[in-house]
Design a protein around this nucleic acid. Structure first.
Length: 729
DNA sequence: ACCACCTGTTATTAT
DNA sequence: AACAGGTGGT
C-alpha cells in the first residue's frame, strides 16, 4: 500500500490517506480524481481495516462506475462484490428492487425512458381532453421531471397560481396514477421512490445507515436536489464521506444539478477538510492555458488554476470552414495527415455540441474510408425496432404495462387499427382496468370487427406464449422467440432497402447480446428471485447510453461534449464552435446558461492531451436554409498567442465542398485568368479597413457578386464586390 | 385497415 | 433536412 501511495503527488496523497471524516476534494480536470478515489478506497480497506461491504460509492455514469470497479479489482485483487458501487440511478434501482414490497411496487416493475414518458403524457392529454395548442406534453414532462428532481410530489405542490400551473399539476397527478397502475417507474422516480422508501421506513434507514459507514461520491457538482437529500439521509451516521468535484465542470444544470451543493457542502455536512488538486497530468500547457483563459470569464467560481509542467506542446489550431461540409472535409484531411504521422485513430476524438452535427461528419468519414465509432446519438436500445421487441418482453412479465401494449398491439400490423384500439382504450377507461384486460373483455363482448378480433386474439396468444417462457427457459431463447413469434422479424425482412436490412441486423444483434448477459451487470445479484428478463429490461434502459452493443472501439471517436466528460484523448477536435450552436442559441438569453455553456467549453478543451483543433463553419444549413454564422465567443476568449496563426495554407489548398461547386453561381477555376469566374481565388489583396488578405472563395455574379477574403488581422469576411474597393498585391 | 404521398413543423445536452 | 401527422386512394 505504501508503494501505491508513493506514486501519488502530495495533494493526492493527502486526499487518499486523509483521516476519517468529511473530505471535499476539489479536483480540476485531469488532476487524477479517479485515481484519488480508487486509492482512497484501497487505503480504507487495506490500512483502516474497512470492510468492502460498508463502502458506498456513487458515480454519475455507468462508465465511471465500471472503470473504478475494475481498477480497484486490479489493485486489491480481492472480491469486491459486497461493495455498493454504481450510479445514483443504478443504486436507487437496486434499493427499489430489493424492497419492492415496501415501496408498493409490483415485483416486475419496469423502467421507462424519456420517449415512453412522453408517449404516456400524450395519451394522458388526450384522455383529459387538454388543449394541445396551449399546453404541450413536452412542457408537462419538464414540469414533472423538474419537480421530481426537487423531491416534490403532485400533492406537495402549492396551489396553482396560474391556469398553466393548474393544468400541469392535474397532469402530474394523473401521470403518477398511470405509472402506479402500469407498474412503471421513470428515471426521476427511481431516486424519489428510493428516497421516500428510506425516509419512511425507519427500520430500513437504520439498517443501511449501520451498514454503510463510508461514502464516496464522484462528480458532486452534478448532483441535483433529490440526489443530495438522498445522500445526506443515507450518510447521516457515516464515519467518512469523501466527495470529489469540480465546479468548473458542472454541465448538467438543465437536468436539475445544483452547483451550490458543492459550495454548501462544508456548512451542511459539518467539519470538512478541503483538498485541492490543481496539478494537471493530462494536457500540455498550451491547452491548459486556453482552458483557464476561457473559464476565467465565469463569475462565482470556487477558483482554482490548473498548472502542469508537461511543456507547451503544439499550438491550438483553429479552422474557419466555409460551411459544414467544408468543416467535415477539413476534419478528414487532418485525420489522414495525423494518421500518416503515426497517430492511432483510437487516439482521436471529435466532439460537438449537439448530436445533429454528427451526420455531416459521419458522411465525410464514411466516404474517406476512415473508420470511426460513435458514442451516443440514437443509441442501440432506443432504436424503434429494439424498443418494439422490448415492449413484447415487457408485456410478457407485466400485462398492465399500457405503454408497451399501445406500442405493439398493432406492430407489425395485424388488423387492429385506430378504431378498434379506441374501443379498447374506452373500455379500459370505463372499467378502470389495463388495456390488456380491456382487450380480453372486448373479445368476449364481440364488439370488434372480425379482423380486429383475430388480431387481438393472436396478439394475446403471442404474449401468453412468451409469458410461459419467462420462467423456465433461458433469456436467449425467450428473446429469440419474441423476435420470431411477434412477427417483427418477418415484418422487417419484407421491408426493402437499407432500412429493413439494418433493422433485421439489429434484432439479431439483440439476440446475441442476451447470450452473454449476466444479472450482475445490473448489480442485482442479491435480488435472487428477480426474473432474468426483468433484469435485462432494466439494464437496457439504465445502460442505454454507450455505444451500440458491438463494442468496436476502433477508429476515431465521435461524441457530444457531454458524453466526453471524464474521458481524455491525445488529439481532440471540437467542431461547430459557432455562436448559436456553441453556445447554443437557446442559452443565449440567460447569463447563467451561457456560463454553463462556457463550462462545457472548458470540459471540451480539457479533454485534449497533446493537441487541440477547433473548427467552425461560416455558413451552415439550419432548418434547410443556409445561414451566416459567427465564430463562438469562447474561441475569441482564447489568447492569440496560443493559436496557430497561419490558416491560409490549409484553406486555399482545400477543395471546395461539393454543394458549392455544383451550384451554377459558384464556379471555381484556376487562378491566373482574370476573365473567368473564380479567377480571383488565391489572390492577395488589400482592403483599406481590414488590411491585407487572401481571397478564398468567390460567388454570385453581377450585383450579387461577392468574395470571401481571409484577412491577416481580422479573419474571414464576406464582401460584396460592388461595395468594396480592392487592390491586388 | 393500410399504404403512399403531401404538408407543416421543427431541435440541445442524457442517467 | 428530417419527421410526425393528415389526406386520399386501394
Amino acid at each position: 500500500m505504501k508503494h501505491l501511495i508513493s506514486q501519488l503527488n502530495r495533494a493526492q496523497q493527502q486526499a487518499a490517506t486523509a483521516q476519517l471524516g468529511k473530505i471535499l476534494v476539489l479536483a480540476g480536470a485531469g488532476s487524477g480524481k479517479t485515481r484519488v478515489l480508487v486509492h482512497r478506497i484501497a487505503w480504507l480497506i487495506n490500512e483502516m481495516c474497512v470492510r468492502p461491504s460498508s463502502i458506498f460509492v456513487v458515480t454519475f455514469t455507468n462508465r465511471a462506475a465500471n472503470e473504478m470497479r475494475s481498477r480497484l479489482k486490479e489493485m486489491l485483487k480481492q472480491n469486491l462484490s459486497d461493495m455498493w458501487i454504481g450510479t445514483f440511478h443504478g443504486l436507487s434501482h437496486k434499493l427499489l428492487r430489493l424492497h419492492w414490497q415496501a415501496c408498493d411496487l409490483p415485483q416486475d416493475f419496469q423502467i421507462i425512458d424519456f420517449e415512453d414518458q412522453l408517449k404516456m403524457l400524450c395519451c394522458l392529454f388526450r384522455k383529459l381532453g387538454i388543449d394541445e395548442e396551449h399546453y404541450k406534453p413536452r412542457q408537462a414532462q419538464q414540469f414533472i421531471n423538474g419537480n421530481k428532481d426537487e423531491g416534490i410530489r403532485a400533492v406537495q405542490l402549492a396551489l396553482a397560481k396560474t391556469a398553466f400551473e393548474s393544468v400541469m399539476i392535474k397532469v402530474y397527478q394523473h401521470y403518477e396514477q398511470m405509472c402506479n397502475g402500469s407498474g412503471l417507474v421513470d428515471f426521476a422516480e427511481l431516486l424519489l421512490g428510493s428516497y421516500e422508501l428510506l425516509s419512511q421506513k425507519l427500520d430500513l434507514l437504520e439498517y443501511y445507515r449501520e451498514k454503510f459507514a463510508h461514502f464516496l461520491v464522484d462528480e458532486f457538482q452534478d448532483t441535483n436536489i433529490i440526489q443530495y437529500k438522498w445522500l445526506k439521509l443515507l450518510s447521516a451516521n457515516a464515519r467518512s464521506v469523501t466527495i470529489v468535484g469540480d465546479d468548473d465542470q458542472s454541465i448538467y444544470g438543465w437536468r436539475g444539478a445544483r452547483v451550490e451543493n458543492i459550495y454548501n457542502f462544508k456548512s451542511e455536512f459539518g467539519k470538512t477538510q478541503v483538498i485541492r488538486l490543481e496539478q494537471n497530468y493530462r494536457s500540455t500547457e498550451t491547452i491548459l492555458s486556453a482552458a483557464n483563459a476561457v473559464i476565467r470569464n465565469n463569475n462565482g467560481r470556487l477558483g482554482k488554476t490548473l498548472w502542469t509542467h508537461t511543456g507547451y506542446g503544439e499550438p491550438i489550431q483553429i479552422y474557419g470552414a466555409l460551411n459544414e461540409e467544408d468543416e467535415a472535409l477539413f476534419l478528414v484531411h487532418q485525420v489522414m495527415q495525423h494518421r500518416e504521422n503515426g497517430v492511432e485513430l483510437e487516439d482521436i476524438a471529435v466532439l460537438y455540441r449537439s448530436n445533429a452535427q454528427s451526420r455531416v461528419l459521419e458522411e465525410a468519414l464514411l466516404r474517406s474510408g476512415i473508420s470511426y465509432s460513435i458514442y451516443g446519438g440514437v443509441r442501440f436500445f432506443e432504436r424503434a425496432e429494439i424498443k418494439d421487441i422490448l415492449a413484447y418482453l415487457r408485456l410478457s412479465v407485466n400485462t398492465s404495462d399500457d405503454v408497451a401494449f399501445e406500442r405493439v398491439i398493432n406492430t407489425p400490423p395485424r388488423g387492429v387499427g385506430e378504431k378498434s384500439f379506441q374501443k379498447i382504450r374506452d373500455l379500459s377507461q370505463t372499467l378502470g382496468v389495463s388495456l390488456w384486460d380491456a382487450a380480453h373483455h372486448l373479445l368476449e363482448g364481440r364488439n370488434l370487427s372480425c379482423r380486429a378480433c383475430d388480431g387481438v386474439r393472436h396478439f394475446i396468444l403471442i404474449i401468453e406464449g412468451l409469458t410461459e417462457k419467462t420462467k423456465g427457459s433461458s433469456l436467449v431463447s425467450l428473446v429469440r422467440d419474441g423476435v420470431q413469434k411477434s412477427g417483427l422479424l418477418a415484418f422487417f425482412q419484407e421491408q426493402k432497402g437499407e432500412k429493413g436490412r439494418s433493422r433485421v441486423e439489429n434484432l439479431e444483434e439483440l439476440v446475441n447480446a442476451t447470450k452473454d448477459f449476466k444479472i450482475d451487470l445490473v448489480d442485482l445479484e442479491y435480488a435472487s428471485d428477480i426474473l432474468p428478463v426483468t433484469a435485462f429490461l432494466s439494464y437496457s434502459t439504465l445502460h442505454s447510453g454507450g455505444r451500440s452493443l458491438n463494442c468496436t472501439t476502433n477508429g476515431i471517436q465521435l461524441m457530444t461534449i457531454h458524453a466526453a466528460k471524464g474521458l481524455e484523448f491525445p488529439l481532440v477536435f471540437i467542431c461547430g464552435a459557432e455562436e448559436g450552436l456553441f453556445p447554443h442559441y437557446l442559452s443565449k438569453e440567460d447569463p447563467l446558461a451561457i456560463e454553463e455553456e462556457r463550462r462545457l467549453c472548458y470540459v471540451a478543451i480539457t479533454r485534449a492531451m497533446r493537441q487541440l483543433c477547433i473548427t467552425y463553419a461560416q455558413e451552415r444549413r439550419i432548418f434547410g436554409r443556409e445561414e451566416i454564422r459567427q465564430v463562438s465567443r469562447f474561441v475569441l476568449e482564447i489568447p492569440d498567442t496560443l493559436i496557430e496563426e497561419d490558416h491560409r495554407k490549409i484553406r486555399v489548398s482545400m477543395n471546395l465542398p461539393k454543394r458549392m461547386s455544383k451550384s451554377e453561381t459558384y464556379k471555381l477555376t484556376d487562378v491566373g485568368d482574370n476573365n473567368k469566374e473564380g479567377a480571383l481565388l488565391g489572390r492577395q489583396i488589400s482592403h483599406k479597413r481590414f488590411g491585407t488578405g487572401i481571397i478564398v472563395a468567390q460567388e454570385g455574379s453581377g450585383v450579387q457578386a461577392r468574395i470571401h477574403v481571409y484577412f491577416d488581422e481580422v479573419g474571414q469576411k464576406c464582401l460584396f464586390m460592388k461595395y468594396v474597393h480592392l487592390e491586388t498585391i
